[in-house]
Simulated assay, not measured.
Amino acid sequence: MKNTVVVAGVAAAFAILAPATALAATPTTTPSAPTTTPATPSATPTATQPEYPEGPLTRITRLLRVAPAKALPGAHVKLDFACQTRGPEEEVVVQSAALVFPKPGNYAAAEVQNVKPGKYRVTLHCGPETYTVPFEVLSAAKQVAKVPSGAPQTGGTDGPADSGPLAAAAAMGVLAVGGGGLLLARRARRR
Rank of each mutant, 00 (worst) to 15 (best):
A13N: 13
A13S: 14
F14S: 05
F14R: 02
A15G: 11
I16C: 01
L17K: 06
A18Y: 05
P19A: 09
P19D: 09
A20G: 03
A22Q: 00
A24R: 01
T26N: 03
T29K: 11
T30W: 03
P31K: 05
S32G: 05
S32C: 07
A33M: 15
A33G: 01
T36I: 14
T36V: 15
P38T: 12
P38C: 04
A39N: 12
A39W: 13
T40E: 08
T40N: 03
P41N: 06
S42D: 13
S42I: 14
A43W: 00
T44I: 09
T46A: 02
A47C: 15
T48Y: 08
T48K: 05
Q49V: 08
E51S: 14
E51Q: 11
Y52N: 12
P53I: 12
P53M: 12
P53E: 09
E54K: 10
G55K: 09
G55W: 08
P56T: 03
P56W: 07
L57K: 12
L57W: 07
T58C: 02
R62K: 14
R62C: 00
R62H: 14
L64Q: 10
R65G: 05
A69K: 07
A69V: 04
L72I: 04
L72N: 06
P73T: 05
P73N: 02
P73M: 09
P73W: 08
G74C: 15
V77D: 06
V77C: 14
K78R: 14
L79G: 03
D80W: 01
D80H: 05
F81W: 11
F81G: 02
A82Y: 01
Q84W: 03
Q84F: 00
Q84D: 13
G87V: 07
E89T: 14
E90D: 10
E91W: 01
E91R: 12
E91F: 06
V93E: 10
V94F: 09
S96K: 04
S96Y: 00
A98T: 00
A98C: 09
A98V: 05
A98N: 02
F101E: 07
P104I: 09
Y107W: 09
A109S: 15
A110M: 06
A110Y: 01
E111C: 03
E111M: 09
E111S: 04
V112Q: 00
V112C: 14
Q113E: 11
V115M: 12
V115W: 08
V115L: 12
V115E: 11
P117A: 01
V122S: 02
T123R: 08
T123V: 10
C126Y: 13
C126H: 08
T130E: 09
T130W: 07
Y131D: 01
Y131H: 08
T132Y: 05
T132R: 00
T132F: 07
T132A: 11
P134K: 13
P134A: 15
P134G: 13
V137I: 11
S139G: 15
A140E: 15
A140D: 15
A141G: 13
Q143L: 14
V144H: 04
V144A: 11
V144C: 12
A145C: 13
A145N: 14
P148D: 03
P148A: 08
A151H: 11
A151Q: 09
P152I: 15
P152Q: 12
Q153G: 03
T154R: 07
T154P: 04
T157D: 12
D158L: 14
